[in-house]
């Protein structure tokens, strides 16, 4: 299924012939993650303990929401829909996006989705984006470049692949104009500027912008914004395709890293540099 507006672009049709549409509809995917400042643990099944009660919106997702809002504002009042998936608490991530300025939110909540790997998560999110598109075509999907829990960075490109749209990832700068998105990205070995016609997915880096901080009025206003709760059945996703059942990776063992032993802390009294050199040589590190 395509998420393109009005029947969309035909396969094979050159991208640059696409017509410009005035209104833009944006989905921003956000994730509720355990606070990275807190102690995070894996359970017996190797799954992250998500019940610590100290969860928060994944930090770089704030940059994703900010990017979505800026694009929406520049497009003259486009609609921004926050999309999240996860247990009850996960709605907090969507609420944060609403406080920042998103118009509405969707929370995919289903026990059977628990334990999804990154690809399962992308599969569910894609189904949700398609359902959102039933009410009106989605032009742009925005995500963060990574979530601080799994740090796989697989979801953005997998989500775009499932939707059959282009993913422009790791953006440090995003511009939408004339029906196309232009992204600047800084890779390990190269800097690039990429362009693609909408619809497209963009993942943003934490360097893309400074996320706005919602004021009291915005926080109050967010309480009145709609949050739809959808199950896998609502999305037409068979439960065995996702969650632990559908995962293509399985954690066999998980252990906390052993504590570092024989640690040394000295205050320099004039010879700490020389001592460090001796330590490095002694431990065959130099």
């Amino acid at each position: 299924m395509s998420i393109v507006r009005g029947g969309g672009t035909k396969v094979g049709q050159p991208a640059r012939c696409r017509v410009t549409f005035p209104a833009v509809r944006i989905v921003v995917a956000v994730k509720h993650v355990p606070d990275i400042q807190a102690d995070r643990t894996l359970g017996q099944d190797g799954r992250l303990a998500r019940d610590g009660g100290d969860g928060t919106l994944n930090e770089v997702d704030e940059n994703a929401v900010e990017a979505a809002l800026v694009v929406a504002e520049s497009a003259g009042g486009a609609e921004v829909i926050a999309l999240t998936m996860g247990p009850d608490d996960a709605v907090d991530a969507a609420r944060r996006a609403l406080q920042m300025g998103a118009d509405s939110a969707v929370h995919v909540l289903d026990e059977a989705a628990a334990g999804s790997d990154a690809l399962g998560t992308a599969h569910v999110l894609a189904a949700a984006v398609r359902k959102i598109a039933e009410d009106g075509p989605v032009d742009l999907v925005v995500t963060g470049m990574a979530a601080t829990d799994g740090l796989t960075s697989l979801v953005p490109a997998a989500l775009a692949a499932e939707l059959g749209i282009v993913a422009l990832t790791l953006a440090v700068d995003v511009t939408v104009a004339d029906g196309a998105v232009v992204v600047r990205r800084e890779l390990d070995h190269a800097d690039e500027t990429l362009r693609a016609a909408l619809p497209a997915l963009v993942s943003v880096s934490d360097r893309a912008n400074e996320a706005r901080y919602p004021n009291f009025a915005a926080i109050m206003a967010a309480r009145k914004k709609p949050v739809a709760v959808w199950s896998l059945a609502d999305l037409g996703v068979p439960p065995d395709e996702v969650g632990s059942a559908g995962a293509r990776t399985r954690i066999l063992a998980a252990e906390p890293r052993p504590a570092r032993k024989d640690r040394v802390l000295v205050t320099d009294t004039g010879d700490a540099g020389a001592q460090l050199a001796a330590y490095l040589v002694e431990h065959k590190l130099a």
Binding site: V266, D268, A272, G273, A274, Y279, L280, A286
Partner: peptide
Amino acid sequence: ADYGIVGDLFEVLPQATAEL
């Protein structure tokens, strides 16, 4: 840190380099 030094890096690092 396995080996921590509370000190001025502009003193400690050059000394470590020279000693190495």
